[in-house]
């Protein structure tokens, strides 16, 4: 009898260990998310920042490169060969190769990820431009449309659906690849995953992993929305 009373009295101060304490170490723990929300937000913001910077840089470089590449067949095959080679190099190996030039900074991650995205984007842009029907091009020229207007008003809009398809691929894989930036401590949510693995902290690594996938899905949905707004004529025919 006395024992139970003692136990009851002792319980409140030695409160039950939280679900993310190393004793329980549960995979999903809302308490963790509440307690560490600042840390999680910071990692998420870094993740989004690195991803967006890489994609914007890649898009900005992809247009001139694709337009240049399509001028001569030889340049095109060179660009495609180099980009295939680049795409072959594993991300964990590409980051160190940038290190001598950019050091341990976010720039290392952004540049490497932009290169990966660039290879996808240039390819899809070239595919899209190639898919423009020759009759459309000829009838535009026949109507007296100049080369610049032909590109901006006819060819690029028609290449847009294929290009945006490539953008979806690039964006989703960039979100996933950003985690590997943890190697140089600029991996966004990847930093949390790495810390979680090192300390066997399940709630931390699972929360960060789930957020990563959600981020990829949200970004994908945004691009799909963009696709609907920019290319209303494809509505209904594509998925």
């Amino acid at each position: 009898m006395r024992v139970t009373v003692l136990a009851a009295a002792a319980a409140p101060p030695a409160a039950e260990p939280s679900c993310y304490s190393s004793v329980r170490n549960e995979w999903w723990c809302w308490q963790y998310v509440v307690d560490r929300r600042e840390e999680i937000t910071e990692a998420g913001v870094q993740h989004v920042g690195i991803t967006l910077a890489a994609i914007v840089l890649a898009v900005a470089l992809a247009f001139p490169l694709a337009l240049l590449a399509r001028r001569t067949r030889r340049l095109e095959s060179t660009v495609l060969a180099v980009s295939t080679g680049l795409y072959t190099i594993p991300s964990l190996a590409l980051f160190p190769l940038f290190l001598p030039f950019t050091g341990l900074s976010a720039a290392t991650v952004v540049l490497a990820l932009a290169l990966y995205a660039l290879t996808v984007l240039v390819r899809s842009l070239l595919d899209g431009l190639r898919a423009v029907p020759e009759e459309v091009r000829e009838s535009a020229i026949g109507q007296g449309v100049g080369p610049t207007r032909l590109l901006l008003r006819v060819e690029l809009p028609l290449a847009l659906p294929v290009f945006l398809g490539g953008l979806r691929v690039a964006a989703v894989s960039t979100v996933a690849l950003t985690t590997v930036g943890a190697l140089v401590s600029y991996g966004g949510l990847g930093n949390l995953i790495q810390h979680g693995v090192a300390r066997n902290f399940r709630a931390e690594l699972l929360t960060a992993s789930v957020l990563c996938v959600l981020l990829a899905l949200v970004l994908d949905a945004v691009i799909v929305l963009l696709q609907r707004l920019l290319t209303p004529w494809t509505r209904g025919s594509t998925v």
Binding site: S209, V213, D220
Partner: peptide, 18 residues
């Protein structure tokens, strides 16, 4: 393929190891 692309390799490895 799309799903495979969205799941970070690192995350899956981490979950399996932990």
């Amino acid at each position: 393929s799309n799903i495979g692309r969205a799941v970070p390799t690192f995350a899956l490895l981490a979950v399996l190891v932990a």
